[in-house]
Computed example of a mutant assay.
Amino acid sequence: MNAPTEYLNPTEAARKLGVSVKALRIYEQRGLIEPTRTEAGWRTYGPKAMDRASEIVALRAMGLSLAQIANALGQEDVDLDALLAAHQSLLEGQMRQIAEKAERVRQRRSHIARRQPEETADETRTSPTPAPPAVVFELPWPWGGERFELLDIHPLNYVIGPLGSGKTRLAHRLAETLPGGVFIGLDRLADGAAKTKTQLAKDPGLSARVEEALTELAANGAERSDALLSLLAVLERDCEEIPVIDLIEQGLHRPSQRALIAYLRGRRANTKPLFIITRSSAILDLDRVGVHESIILCPANHSPPTPVTAYPGAPGYEAVATCLATPEIRARTEGVIAIRTNPQ
């Protein structure tokens, strides 16, 4: 025996579809659906009407207008895929515009955070003048001499990209160009950080600052290690250097990485800038990037490095996200990455 066909009244149909009864009435007025009528004249929605209404609701959730939906569903020769492709292109363009606006807001907030209140007040009374680039240079291979401009140096700057993207070459050029720039490579870990330990033995002041920092990080879950020691010896130097650190997570387990990035965020706003290469999602948590931080992406196709806003839908956001891995995965590929990055 066949099961009876289910017909729903407007309230039941609207509840099942997740829309209002008024929305169903509008769909009907536009000729998009045609409910069945009872002998008493009441509207009911059978399987055919509900399937059609579900399709309309799905297309509306994608942002299509009722006019577009009427055109798509009302003509057999309309290419729905082409219509959706055009709509997707429109949405992506809007996301790029929003991302660009969000980046301008972020930069503005960053400038305000670093300026005196009276300077900010003066700015509001005059037309803003674009700031000159903080650093400009010709990019090395594989970019072939293209011009690179870094418009704003933040206290904490991430350099990221897939293997072979040139991020370490970019880091070397940044260290060469930045005033006081110094590249800190993976050789910091050689022989159990022997070079660092010798340096600390000769500099009691630095040794004391490093020990204080180690104690702070250990209290937040970090593990004392040669890798962490070598980083803190760089970070606690009493000089005007701008460190550019290769694979800052190398040799650190997850709790240490989390403690380290919290430590960096806590001190970066009031001290020298720092550039770090990373591919760890514990170091670069895209949900926690703040106004004092920036991301520079080296794309896989060797397009010029570009700033990326940590905002879903922003240009380059997905590419950055795909470069990141958990500390456990990064630890398993540590040797491969060291071999591939050192020659850069």
Rank of each mutant, 00 (worst) to 15 (best):
A171H: 05
A171Y: 07
H172A: 07
H172Y: 07
H172P: 03
R173D: 06
R173Q: 14
R173P: 01
R173E: 15
R173I: 03
L174W: 07
L174D: 07
L174C: 14
A175H: 03
E176C: 07
T177V: 05
L178V: 03
L178F: 01
P179H: 08
P179Q: 08
P179S: 13
G180L: 10
G180T: 05
G181P: 14
G181F: 11
G181R: 09
G181H: 12
G181N: 10
V182R: 10
V182D: 07
V182P: 02
F183E: 00
F183I: 03
F183V: 00
F183M: 02
F183W: 01
I184A: 05
I184K: 00
I184M: 02
I184W: 04
I184E: 00
G185F: 04
G185Q: 02
L186H: 05
L186M: 12
L186T: 02
L186Y: 06
L186G: 15
D187G: 01
R188M: 11
R188S: 14
R188P: 05
A190H: 08
A190W: 01
D191M: 02
D191V: 02
D191K: 05
D191E: 04
G192M: 05
G192E: 08
A193C: 02
A193R: 02
A193M: 05
A193N: 08
A194E: 03
K195M: 04
K195F: 03
K195L: 13
K195E: 02
K195T: 02
T196V: 12
T196Q: 09
K197V: 00
K197Q: 06
K197T: 01
Q199L: 08
Q199I: 02
L200Y: 10
L200Q: 12
L200W: 09
L200R: 13
L200S: 11
A201N: 09
A201H: 07
K202N: 15
D203S: 15
P204L: 11
P204Q: 08
P204T: 14
P204W: 10
G205D: 11
G205F: 06
G205I: 13
L206Q: 12
L206P: 13
L206K: 14
L206H: 09
S207G: 14
S207V: 05
S207A: 15
S207Y: 09
A208T: 14
A208Q: 15
A208D: 15
R209F: 13
R209C: 12
R209N: 14
V210R: 12
V210D: 11
E211Y: 03
E211H: 12
E211I: 07
E211Q: 13
E211V: 09
E212K: 04
E212S: 13
E212T: 13
E212D: 14
E212A: 15
A213W: 05
A213Q: 07
A213L: 09
A213S: 15
A213N: 13
A213E: 09
L214V: 12
L214A: 11
L214F: 13
L214Y: 08
T215G: 09
T215Q: 09
